[in-house]
Amino acid sequence: MKGTFCILLLLLLAIIAPAQRRTVTSEEREQKKQQHQEAQRRDSTRRSQYLRVRLPVVFKFQVASGFALMNNNQSPLKVHSSVGSGAELQLGFKMAKHICLGAGINIMNYFVDNLALQRSVKTLFEQADYTTTVTSYKNVSFTRGNLFFYSSYWSYRPKSVLECYAKLAMTHSGYTIDYLVFSRKNDSHYSELNSLHSQAAFSGMMPSVGANYALRLAPIIYLTLTGEYGYSITTQKH
């Protein structure tokens, strides 16, 4: 009888013990999984906070328009003011509450007053007793690209930010002149053909100052309006 009881007890233990072990393992596994998920969540939060603290970045994308005044003093050709349009992209870093440093690119295309330029070309080749005609020409447009660095001061308003900035740009700009002018002497068969062809390329620097009004539309989105004046210091290559 005692022997039978012992055998039954052993059998019972053999059945129950593995089941108990399985339950413990499952709970432990669940706990480990939860701990792992918690650790991952903490890491993720830490990373995002790190970014938020370390990268106070400001992006700006702007459609640009404006006009350029040319320096005509040294040239017999006269290019007057030209109206242009383009785009500007900026990446800034807030260094302090009121200070921002950044860089960007600006590309503009200006439409030159071709009639005024044509008139000045004709005037250049006009002589007494000659009939002068501009026989062919190519419309001139003036293209400019900038790589710039800027520093700005931010003045805060309740719903907006007023930013005053100074820029220093490395510029590359150019245009192509292509004219053919025919002159014929009135009282003889003597004639002259003048060809004007030049690819003007200007590399240089352009310091500029400006102000930017940013109206807050949402906590991270602002509508910006900017006005800027720059003076270009260039060298000319023929």
Partner: peptide, 30 residues
């Protein structure tokens, strides 16, 4: 022949400014 050189530029821009890392949210208090 010398050609006219660009000298003065006036520019007016309109656009968007994005500040995606503007603030730290209260729930993220590392």
């Amino acid at each position: 022949m010398m050609l006219p050189t660009p000298a003065h530029f006036v520019q007016l821009n309109i656009g968007m400014m994005l500040r995606p890392f503007n603030t730290i949210r209260p729930g993220e208090m590392k």
